[in-house]
Lab assay of single mutants.
Amino acid sequence: NKASVVANQLIPINTALTLIMMKAEVVTPMGIPAEEIPKLVGMQVNRAVPLGTTLMPDMVKNYE
């Protein structure tokens, strides 16, 4: 099973992601793959992301 990106803390709306906000975890359903973490740094979330939430592509602005 591949790990996904999971919020390590509450991430407020429009916050630019940093490494300490994210962790890799095997979850179902899968979200953004953990190997994308370096690419996510500096990208903004378009909603508040609660602690423990799996990051999905539609939660990150301009994620492709």
Rank of each mutant, 00 (worst) to 15 (best):
Y63L: 11
Y63W: 10
T54Y: 02
P38Y: 11
Q44P: 10
V45D: 01
A3Y: 13
A16R: 07
Y63A: 06
M59R: 06
L10C: 02
A3R: 14
N62C: 03
M30W: 08
P12K: 09
V45Y: 00
I32C: 02
P50T: 04
G42T: 04
G52P: 01
I13G: 10
A34N: 05
N46M: 11
P33W: 10
G31M: 03
A24C: 03
M30S: 08
A24N: 05
M22F: 11
Q9Y: 09
P50F: 13
M30Q: 15
A24G: 10
L40Y: 03
L51F: 14
N46Q: 12
P50K: 12
A34R: 04
K23V: 07
A48Q: 15
A34C: 03
L19V: 14
I32M: 05
I32K: 01
K39M: 07
T54W: 02
L10E: 07
T54S: 10
T28V: 12
P12D: 11
V60D: 00
D58L: 10
V6G: 02
A16S: 08
A16P: 15
T28M: 08
T54F: 02
I13R: 08
V5R: 00
L55Y: 01
A16E: 10
E35G: 15
I32R: 00
V27S: 11
N8I: 08
T18L: 06
A48W: 13
M22W: 02
N62K: 07
A34M: 14
E36P: 01
N14W: 06
P29I: 05
I13Q: 13
V26F: 10
M59Y: 09
E25Y: 05
G31Y: 02
L17V: 05
P33H: 04
N8K: 09
P38T: 15
Q44D: 07
L17K: 00
P50S: 13
E36T: 06
N14V: 08
Y63S: 11
A34E: 04
L55V: 12
N8W: 11
D58Q: 11
Q9S: 09
T28H: 09
L19F: 05
A34I: 10
N14H: 12
T54H: 04
A16K: 13
N62A: 15
M43F: 10
L55T: 01
Q9C: 03
E35K: 15
K23R: 15
V5C: 03
N62S: 14
G31R: 03
P33F: 03
I20Y: 08
D58H: 14
M59G: 04
E25P: 02
M30N: 05
M43W: 10
Q9W: 14
M56Q: 05
K39V: 09
P33T: 12
L40V: 11
V6F: 03
V49G: 01
V6L: 10
G52F: 07
A7C: 02
K61I: 06
I37F: 06
E36D: 12
E36F: 06
L40G: 00
L40T: 02
I20W: 09
T53K: 15
Y63C: 03
